[in-house]
Design a protein around this nucleic acid. Structure first.
Lengths: 151, 151
DNA sequence: CCAAACTGGTTTCATTTGTAACCATCGAAA
DNA sequence: TTTCGATGGTTACAAATGAAACCAGTTTGG
């Protein structure tokens, strides 16, 4: 009978690594501010782009719209963002970080970058660039970069 | 204010890719047999190693013990595995696939391998080997390979 | 021998997640 | 204009998850 070596199976390894990295990284937003991952991504998207709609947020950060909806609701409750109704389309709301939201964002960005740097430092120069192109290739192949995501 | 480019942030890219791959791959065990991921991993571990304890399963496949416990219960309900009490330690149970379990495993392994092949085909030879060493390095650095996992 | 600490495994409960249904609004076509 | 399908976003409900409590059995140290 043909067997599968799980520990060397790419989907499994990818998932396990991503999961470990993500848990590790969660310390930065969870322990310090009690954010969930969707909340962190929402904060991050708005910090980066200034103003976005919920739909745009979902696309940019690969989140299902229910996740976005709940994350936005929570950040609003904290008064880290505000909603502004769109002039032309009354279904749409434009989301923007408040001063408090920006402050939290500004505080976490350097920590996030340091975390990433810590990871990349472990890799040789060659592996560092190779992993980036490999990721890009697989992302393109899976249609992950700019699609209608479900996550 | 310093910003973070989420779409180029390694932890995010890793997670998003792993998530996409995992969803895609889930078709192989979910759509065909209605398995969850923990159930698939359990099946896979036992198919590969023949007989294991729940604890060993958790270590090999990076699952929290509650996930293992529930997956094992479900596979037992399907009569895909059986439990045999340990001779010396009455807390321990040895898990083994039944004929039906092995059949399902044998059926899925080629599909899994084909899926992995499909992914790797997208990469150049260089990237293929580089991504493996990069994964190994990060796994080692995060202590993912052989630890007390929580996932 | 006995108590305390530990380990394998299950269960309980609160939280998170996903699917689907839903509401409101919009755009296109009749 | 009216109707019908699509779209932005929220809500309801069921299933998956994780933390911690738990039970049973085992080891250790006095």
């Amino acid at each position: 009978m043909e067997i599968l070596d799980l520990e060397n199976f790419l989907p499994y390894r990818l998932y396990r690594l991503a999961d470990a990295v993500s848990r590790e990284f969660a310390g930065i937003y969870k322990d310090s501010h009690g954010l969930t991952r969707p909340e962190w991504r929402t904060l991050s998207g708005l910090g980066q782009h200034g103003t976005m709609t919920a739909t745009a947020l979902g696309e940019q950060s690969a989140m299902h719209k229910t996740k976005v909806s709940r994350a936005v609701a929570e950040l609003e409750r904290r008064r880290w963002l505000t909603r502004t109704p769109d002039e032309n389309d009354r279904r749409v709301e434009h989301l923007t970080l408040t001063k408090a939201g920006l402050a939290a964002y500004g505080e976490m960005v350097p920590l996030a970058k340091a975390f990433e740097r810590g990871l990349l430092e472990e890799l040789s120069n060659g592996d560092r660039s190779a992993i980036k192109t490999a990721l890009a290739t697989l992302e393109a192949c899976l249609g992950v970069s700019h699609p209608e995501r479900k996550g």
